[in-house]
Amino acid sequence: MPEPTAHDAHHGFELPLPLFAGFRSLVDRLHDEPARQGHPDLRPVHGFAMQAIGPDGASASEMGRRLGVSKQAAGKTVDRLVALGYAERAGDANDARRKPVRLTPRGFDALARSAAIFDDLRAEWAEALGERRLAELESGLRTVVPATGLRLDAAGWFGP
């Protein structure tokens, strides 16, 4: 009987678990710090939604497509972001029916702070794993995940 290999010791169904746990750990830790920096009401769904709005704004329909949720669900998230001061509804000079959503200075501030916190979290992972191992992990994930595989619909993916 052949000796077991490293591949034999792991099962395919186990792979998503540490990937998701790592993702969840980063997102959970990310949201602890902005609360201390003046953004206590931010939730993970808000970060996904602000990324979907992007620097140039987006309609609720565009946001829904980017997030993988209905236009109505995107609209409810927009309502909350507007109420919290992270986004605003604006008119479109080229199309009166289109009501783009744009980030406010508070929204851009939250995203900038989040980016800096992610840099700090990555540095912690580099310290724990070593920069070379972390870079190999990132490179490996980019190899197996297609460029079009980056979707912002994780918040809606787990919903009902």
Rank of each mutant, 00 (worst) to 15 (best):
A96K: 15
L152M: 14
L121A: 01
A6D: 11
Y86Q: 07
L134K: 07
R89V: 06
H39C: 05
D120P: 09
H10T: 06
R66T: 09
L19C: 05
P160W: 08
G159Q: 15
K99M: 10
P4Y: 10
D8L: 08
A21L: 09
A6Q: 10
P146A: 08
L134H: 06
H31A: 04
G91N: 04
M1K: 09
V82T: 13
G57V: 02
Q72S: 08
G107I: 09
P18W: 00
R151H: 09
S114Y: 04
A147I: 06
A90R: 07
I53L: 12
S139H: 15
P2I: 02
E131Q: 14
A112E: 05
R98Y: 00
N94E: 12
D95H: 09
Q72I: 10
G57S: 05
L111I: 15
R133L: 14
P40Y: 08
R122T: 07
A154E: 10
T143C: 09
R80W: 03
L150I: 08
K71V: 05
L67P: 03
G38W: 03
E138L: 15
G68E: 11
H46A: 12
E124V: 14
A87S: 10
F118A: 03
G149W: 06
G130H: 15
A110P: 13
L134N: 08
P2M: 03
H7N: 07
H11K: 08
V27Q: 00
L134A: 07
M1Y: 05
P34W: 10
P160F: 10
D41W: 13
T104M: 03
R36K: 05
W125Q: 04
R113D: 07
K99G: 07
A90P: 00
L141M: 14
S61M: 11
L67Q: 06
G156L: 15
D119C: 09
A112P: 00
V45L: 11
L19E: 01
H31N: 11
L84P: 11
F48S: 08
P40H: 10
Q37P: 02
Q72Y: 08
L129Q: 10
E88P: 00
G107M: 10
I53G: 10
A112Y: 01
F118G: 01
W157A: 14
H39E: 06
P160C: 06
F13S: 13
E33P: 01
E124I: 13
E14R: 01
P160N: 12
E3M: 04
E136L: 15
G38S: 02
A90M: 03
P16R: 03
E33A: 12
T143P: 04
A49H: 09
E33C: 10
K71L: 05
F23P: 00
L121R: 02
G140I: 03
R98A: 04
